[in-house]
Nucleic acid binder design. Sequence first.
RNA 1: ACUGCGGGCUACUCCAUCGCCUUGUCCGCCACUGGCGGACGGGGAGGAACGUCCGGACAACGUAGGGCACCGCACCACCUAACGGGUGGGGCACGAGCAAUCGUGAACAGAAAGUGUCACAGAAAAUUACCGCCCCGAGCAAUCGGGGUAAGGGUGAAAACGUGCGGUAAGAGCGCACGGCGUUCCGCAGCAAUGCGGGGGGCGGAUAAACCUUGUGGGUUGAAAUGCCAUGUACACCGGCGAUGGCACUGGGGGAUUUCGGAUUUCGGAUAUUCGAUUUCGGACGUAUGUUCUCCGAAAUCCCAAAUCCCAAAUCCGAAAUCCUCCAGUGCCGGAGGGCGGCCCGCCCGAGCCGGGGGGUAGGCAGAUAGAGGCCGGUCGUGAGGUCGGUUCGAGAUAAAUGAUGGAGCCCGUCUUGCGUCGGGUUACAGAAUCCGGCUUAUUGGUCCGCAGUGCUU
RNA 2: GGCUCCGUAGUACAAUGGAUAGUAUGUAGGUUUCCGGAACCUAAGAUACAGGUUCGAUCCCUGUCGGGGCUA
Length: 171
Amino acid sequence: MNLAVGIWLLAFLLPLRSAKISPTSPPMADFTFKKAERLKSLKVIGGLFKGGQSFGVYPLRLFWSEHPPEAEPGGAPVQFTVSVAKKNFKSAVARNRIKRKVREAWRLNKHRLYRKLEGTERQFAFLVLFVAKEDLPMAQIEKAMQTMVHLFFKKNISPAANPPGDGQPLS
RNA sequence: ACUGCGGGCUACUCCAUCGCCUUGUCCGCCACUGGCGGACGGGGAGGAACGUCCGGACAACGUAGGGCACCGCACCACCUAACGGGUGGGGCACGAGCAAUCGUGAACAGAAAGUGUCACAGAAAAUUACCGCCCCGAGCAAUCGGGGUAAGGGUGAAAACGUGCGGUAAGAGCGCACGGCGUUCCGCAGCAAUGCGGGGGGCGGAUAAACCUUGUGGGUUGAAAUGCCAUGUACACCGGCGAUGGCACUGGGGGAUUUCGGAUUUCGGAUAUUCGAUUUCGGACGUAUGUUCUCCGAAAUCCCAAAUCCCAAAUCCGAAAUCCUCCAGUGCCGGAGGGCGGCCCGCCCGAGCCGGGGGGUAGGCAGAUAGAGGCCGGUCGUGAGGUCGGUUCGAGAUAAAUGAUGGAGCCCGUCUUGCGUCGGGUUACAGAAUCCGGCUUAUUGGUCCGCAGUGCUU
RNA sequence: GGCUCCGUAGUACAAUGGAUAGUAUGUAGGUUUCCGGAACCUAAGAUACAGGUUCGAUCCCUGUCGGGGCUA
C-alpha cells in the first residue's frame, strides 16, 4: 500500500522520468531526513566556501566535497545543508520558508543519488546555496534539484567520468 | 447608505499522504543502563512570538560606615508583585456650541532660591532711554548743557498688567473704578489635586526636552547567570613587580656523622632522551614475503577563535644522640597586590600578582516550562481591578523543529434569470529560545463601537 | 541572548541652539595647451524618517528605520 502511494506520488511529481525510475526504484524509497544526514560542522561548511567545488543549476548552487574515507564509518552517504543569503532576503521568515522548500526538495530526490552510491563507502558534504533574488514555486525548485543531482552523478561518480583526485580532507 | 479617521474583537476550517521536533508504552540490536532502529499513541509558534523601551520573578556576588558623584521619575487619588503601565478625577490648550456641555491632545513640580543664554534688528532683551514730552540754565536764534519721565513713535518671536478717570511741570498702579494674572490667609465642598466666595499684600519677560533646586526611587551583573558530571592535558619556557624578613613558642619532616638492630637482593658497573605534533628522507634493533610496530638522526611544516577554566599530589628499612636545615600553626612589625559596584576618607584580606607564548577540553544533565496561568459563574467597585467557587492545561529546540502535495468547504471576478461553468485567491504583519506584567511599532480580510463629512427619506 | 555607540554632498570629515550648513576630494562646464595632465575660474550636490520643546533645531527630547562595536 505504501509502495503504491509512493509510486503514485512520484508519477505525479515527475511525469517525464517516472517511467525510467519506477522499475528500478527500491521497494522502500527512503524519504526521511534524519539528524545524521544534516551538515552541522562549522569547520566543514567554512571549508566548502573556501575550497570546495561547486556548480550551479538556477536557482541553486551546490558546494560539495568528499569526506576522508575513515572519517565516520557507517555514517550517512551525504550530509546536507541549505544557505540563503541575508542580502537577498531581508525577512527571516522568507529565508526560513525558502530553506524549508529546498530541504523538502532534497528529501524527495536524494534517493536517486543514494542508490548510485550503494556499495561504495564514499561520503560527501553538500551545501546548497539559494541564489535567486525572489521566492520561487516549489515545482521549479524541485526540478532544479533533480537536474543538480543528475549532473553531480554524471560529473563525479559515474565510471565514465574520471573523478578529480581532489579527495583531500578539508582542514 | 457611503467615505475618511481612531479604537475593540478575531487571526480560516475539515480530510488524505510524505516528512521534521518532542514525549509515553512495547519490541529488536549494539552496548552496559545509555545509543540506534521499528510499531502504536499524545503534543507542536504569536497577537504582536517583533523591537528590547520600562517593571518584576529567578540566580550569582555583595551587604563596617560616612561623604561626593551617577541614572530614572514628577497635578491628585486608586489598581498592581512592581512599573516610566493602567483606571478615575482635576486644571491647561485647541475645536464645536448662544449656553449648559461635548470631543481631542499632552513629559501638567519649581523661572518669586541662584547661575547662564536670548542671534539679527532695536535706545534697551531685564533696574534700559534713540526720537519724543516737561522743568532749569546758557544763547538774539539755530541749538547746547544738567535733570525728571516712560504716555506716544519705531525694532523684534518677545518691550515692563489692559481700559477709563483723577493726578502732574510732564508723566507713571502714583491713586481710584472695572477687568486680568499669579501669591498668601480664612470659610465652605472634596480623601486629595482643585473649585467657589471673601480679605491682605503685589504686577516680578522667555527658557528647567540649559545648568540647577525640591521631593522620590535605584546594590551590581544577567540564563552565555548558576550548580553538577564526563573527556583531555605539559608549571617545557620568556619578561615585569613583590614576599620568602626579624623575635618568641609549639608540632612535624629531611640531611650529615656516630652507635645499634632488621629485611631483601646481589658479580660489578655504565649510558641515553627533553615543549609537542605531522610529513619526508636516512639509519638501528627484533620480526618478517610484505604490511605494521619500537628507537635514533636530519630537514620541512604546523603550533590558539577565546576566557576570571584545568595543567595537581605522593613515593626509597627502622631506632637513639648531636649538629645543620626546611615546613606548618599562633602573636607583633614590614608587605606587591586585591575587596568595599565610579571617586575619596576609612576599614578588611593578603603570598603571590601581571603580561607574552604553548598544550588540553568545549560534550551531557539540571536551570527549562503549572504560572502574579487560561476559561466559566457568583460577588464588591464608576473603573483599572479584587475576592470566592468550579473547571482545564496543551512547544521546549540547541547549525535550532510547523514544510510539501492533493481534495472539499469559504471568498472574489466573468458568463448566466437561476442551477451551474470557467479563472483566481485561501492571505497581511511576521517565527518561541528562562518566564511573566506593560509599552511602542507592523498588519490582510471580516465584524462592532465612537467622531467628522456627503447624499437621500421623515 | 544581553549591553552599548553612531547616522551630515558620491566619499572622508567640520559646524556653541542663531543669518544662505563649511573643508578636502570626486562629478560637470569653462580658461590655458597642438592634445592630455597639472593649474585657475564657475556650478550642481547633503543634516536617515516622523513628531515634539523653543521666537528659532544638524545640535535638546521621544518614537521608528538603518549601521557598527563589546560580551562565552
